[in-house]
Each structure stands twice: as C-alpha cells, then as structure tokens.
Simulated scan of single mutants.
Amino acid sequence: MALVRLRRSVRAIVLDEGDRVLLCRFVIPEPGGAVVVWAAPGGGVERGESVLAALQRELREETGLVIDGEPPHVWHQEVIDPGHAVDYDGVINDYFLVRTASFRPRGALSDDELAAENIEGFRWWGLREIAGYRGTDLFSPRDLATPLAALIAGRASGAVVRLGL
C-alpha cells in the first residue's frame, strides 16, 4: 500500500464588520485552460512551524493582516486527490475565524511572488454574492455558502465542522 502524502495547510475565514469574507483569486493553469478558484487566504505549514505561526505568517505575507491571539478553529477539510496539490496526494486545510475591520489587502509578498503562488487578486464577498454566483469560477470549498452562512449566523456548535471538497 502506497503512503499517502498530504500537504498540511491553514486558512483564515476573514470576516469584516459587514460579514463579508475576504477571498483570494487563484488562477490555476490546467492543460485545457486556467481554472479560477476563490479561496480563503492561507497556505502550507512549514516543517517545525506551529499551526498558529503558519496562520500568522500566511496572513501577513498575503494580505498584510496581523493577528494577535489564537482565533477559533472552525472548519477542517481533507481532500485526497493527487492532482490537488503539487507533489502531494492531497491536502488537509484547517480554517480559523478572524474578525476584523475591512481593509485593502496588501501583504509582504510582491505581485510576482503572489503570482508564483497562483494568487492574482483579492476580493471581499458577501454571503448572498457567493450563494447566488452563477459564473465559471469555483469556490473552495465548493459549497462555501453553506458553512459560511452557519458561521455568520452563529449556528456553529463550537465543534470543528468537517467540510467536503
């Protein structure tokens, strides 16, 4: 039996005072053309790095947001798919809730460094916009509107919610 290698990642559900969520626009090259995916800011946990340190680093690098304290862990996602993360058989994403005032994302990474990570921009999205979106771009997770609605409404039980693809 082959060993499954999963990339460990952290992501932040960044909600502003209007309950809009900050998402990164990932443009992923594919053989048939690029795929656009809107996903929460974050990224890989480096060897020897704590989950909290990785979250703080990723938010600072990508968006410029500096967080204090330990935000609540709200979602967990495991995707087993060899094509999902380069050099891995899949990914484990742990999502943390970060509440903040709206801001213009501008992190420590240059535009070229962001592009090397397939990030081509940021946008604040309202829940209705996500739920009603009918374009060709994807969201991660695919049904982002459902767990996001529960999170915004405060219907979360305090337990970490397991997400699908």
Rank of each mutant, 00 (worst) to 15 (best):
E46G: 03
A54H: 04
I28M: 07
V161C: 10
A39Q: 03
G121F: 06
V35H: 01
I67S: 07
F26C: 02
R142A: 15
I67C: 05
E62C: 10
E30S: 09
L22C: 10
G126H: 07
L163T: 01
P71T: 13
L15G: 13
W125N: 00
A153G: 14
S9V: 05
N93K: 14
D68H: 08
P29M: 08
V160T: 13
A131G: 10
D87K: 12
L148R: 03
D143I: 03
V37P: 01
R11A: 15
E62Q: 13
A159F: 08
D68S: 15
R60N: 06
I80W: 03
R134E: 14
A108R: 13
N118M: 09
P105Q: 13
V66D: 08
S50M: 10
C24A: 14
A40R: 01
I92W: 00
L144N: 01
E120W: 13
I80Y: 06
V14Q: 04
E46A: 15
V21D: 05
G158W: 03
R99D: 10
P71L: 11
T136A: 15
S102I: 08
R142K: 13
I28C: 08
L138E: 04
I28W: 04
F96I: 09
L151C: 13
V91F: 01
L138F: 04
G69V: 13
A149R: 11
S140C: 15
V45M: 11
A116M: 13
E17H: 11
